[in-house]
Structure formats: structure tokens, C-alpha cells
């Protein structure tokens, strides 16, 4: 039987919410929007596991929107890079390696991130190195849409196209919200597709950015592109999974209270059951 990635996504979403409750903080809204991208990459696309994590031919992921590390932790735990119980106990606690942003002293995490706009240039370096060494592996970088206001993203966009990095695939988690409000009110970029195209990228838009099957089709398309980098603009929903959180700017960084927690878990369970019968 093939894995039901929607069911998996709700199981992992529950863990994210529990982790944020345990650690008393976390970027819950973005975790919910990005988790299907991570699931698709780690379970359907990337050649990466605890077994080959030091193999130079492995696929690489750079989590440029590092604040959504909780979603990354649960996916890495599911991949058995470390036990989920350990993350749950230690997340954000005194002396813990499970910091609120990616920490490359942990297995499965390639680079430290957290300050936005760093991931794309770093990924370009990785893609260049792999090409220099004649490797066929792929490099993925996940950026937030608010992050795209960082100038370094566009320095990277230029270089990736100039060096024709078809082993590089960027993903934009286009959830349309950032900490101060809607992305179009804070710093508009609704012409994102045109922007990346004008920089020489192959652009793939995924209208259902929280649907792993749709994302998987996009990643397959990206692999077929030769001579230029590809970017997947995933139209996601911030807080996806529960009506309590969805499209709510106040849930950028929020710890649910008892009532909210109960409703979120109820919503997850209902949607998981519905997904099971799809």
C-alpha cells in the first residue's frame, strides 16, 4: 500500500503543535504551510536518510526559512535522524541542541540558518560544488515569501541563472502572510513568477501548495529542466490544517491555549480521517 501523505501530514502537524506547546513557542503558522513541502521532499523526492547523510552524493536541503524548524524537526524525526521523544522533551529547553532555528550540529541539518536570505546563495555553492565534482545529486532550498524582500535572495537568483544550475530547485512557501500582515501590504511581490522568469529561472506554480501529490508533480517537472534553475512557487495556506489558525496573521508565532489546542487537534483528526477515505 502506498503511503497516504495527507494522513502523515496531520500526524506530523500534531507533533508540531505539541512541540510548540512543550517548548512554549514556535512559528506555528509557517510550520503548517511548509510541512507538506518538507514531507514531499523527504519522503518522495530526496535521496537522504540517516544512512547516507554523509555521502557526498546525497541530495541536500537548505531550510532558508529557518524559523519553521519545528516542521523540519518532526520530518527529520520521522526519517529517524533522531527520536521524536527527544525533540519533544528538549525543544527550546536550556542547553538543548534543538534550537528554534536549524542547527547543523544535529544530524540531518546541513547548515545553520535563521537569518533570512541566506539559503539561496549557500545552495548555489552546494550546487556548484556538486557540479564541479561531476555529481548527479540535487539541491533544494525552501524560502518564505516574506523572505524574498531580502536583497541577497536576488543576488542568488542572478548567480543561479548565470551558472545554469539545473541541479538546484528553490521552493517558495507562498502563504501570503508575514509577521506584520499580508505580504502584499508589507512588500508587494504578486508578480513573483515574472520576477523569477526575468532572472532566467524556470517557474512552476503549484496552486494547491499543501497537496503533496501536486507538489510531487512539480518536483518531477523541475528535475526535467535543463540549463537553468527551477523555482516552485507553492501557493500554501498559513496555519493549514485547522480553521483556528488558517490565514491568521496572529498565528505567525503563537502558542495555542487549551481551547484552541482542543479545536486544532479536533480539526486535524477530522481532516486526517477524511484523507484516509479519499
Amino acid at each position: 500500500m502506498t503511503e497516504n501523505y495527507k494522513v502523515l501530514s496531520y500526524e506530523l502537524r500534531k507533533q508540531v503543535v505539541d512541540m510548540i506547546l512543550e517548548g512554549n513557542g514556535g512559528h506555528i503558522g509557517g510550520d503548517m504551510s511548509v510541512i507538506d513541502i518538507l514531507i514531499t521532499l523527504y519522503f518522495r523526492q530526496m535521496n537522504i536518510s540517516p544512512v547516507n547523510q554523509d555521502d557526498p552524493d546525497r541530495d541536500y536541503l537548505i531550510m532558508s526559512k529557518g524559523h519553521c524548524v519545528e516542521a523540519l524537526y518532526v520530518v527529520l524525526a520521522k526519517k529517524e535522524f533522531f527520536p521524536i521523544e527527544k525533540v519533544m522533551q528538549e525543544f527550546s529547553r536550556f542547553g538543548s541542541p534543538f534550537i528554534g532555528h536549524p542547527n547543523n550540529k544535529l544530524p540531518g541539518i546541513e547548515m545553520n540558518s535563521g537569518s533570512l536570505g541566506h539559503g539561496l546563495p549557500v545552495s548555489i555553492g552546494i550546487a556548484l560544488a556538486n557540479r564541479m565534482d561531476g555529481r548527479k545529486n540535487r539541491v533544494y532550498v525552501i524560502m518564505g515569501d516574506g523572505e524574498l524582500a531580502e536583497g541577497s535572495v536576488w543576488e542568488g537568483a542572478m548567480a543561479a541563472a548565470m551558472y545554469k544550475l539545473d541541479n538546484l530547485c528553490a521552493v517558495v512557501d507562498r502563504n501570503r502572510l508575514q509577521i506584520s500582515g499580508g505580504t502584499e501590504e508589507v512588500m508587494a511581490h504578486d508578480d513573483l513568477k515574472e520576477r523569477f522568469r526575468s532572472f532566467g529561472w524556470h517557474v512552476i506554480e503549484v496552486e494547491q501548495g499543501n497537496d503533496s501529490d501536486a507538489l510531487n508533480v512539480a518536483f518531477e517537472e523541475a528535475k526535467r529542466i535543463k540549463g537553468r534553475p527551477a523555482v516552485i512557487i507553492a501557493d500554501t495556506v498559513k496555519g493549514f490544517g485547522s480553521s483556528v489558525m488558517e490565514n491568521q496573521v496572529s498565528w505567525h508565532h503563537h502558542v495555542p491555549n487549551d481551547e484552541e489546542y482542543a479545536q486544532i487537534m479536533k480539526d486535524f483528526e477530522e481532516r486526517k480521517e477524511a484523507a484516509r477515505h479519499e
Binding site: 546541513e110 547548515m111 541566506h118 546563495p121 548555489i124 552546494i126 550546487a127 556548484l128 542568488g156
Partner: peptide, 9 residues
Amino acid sequence: GIAAGLAKC
């Protein structure tokens, strides 16, 4: 950033 990515590999 690119220098760091290269060094990573």
C-alpha cells in the same frame, strides 16, 4: 554565502 555552500561540500 556561495563560498560557504562550496565549503559544505
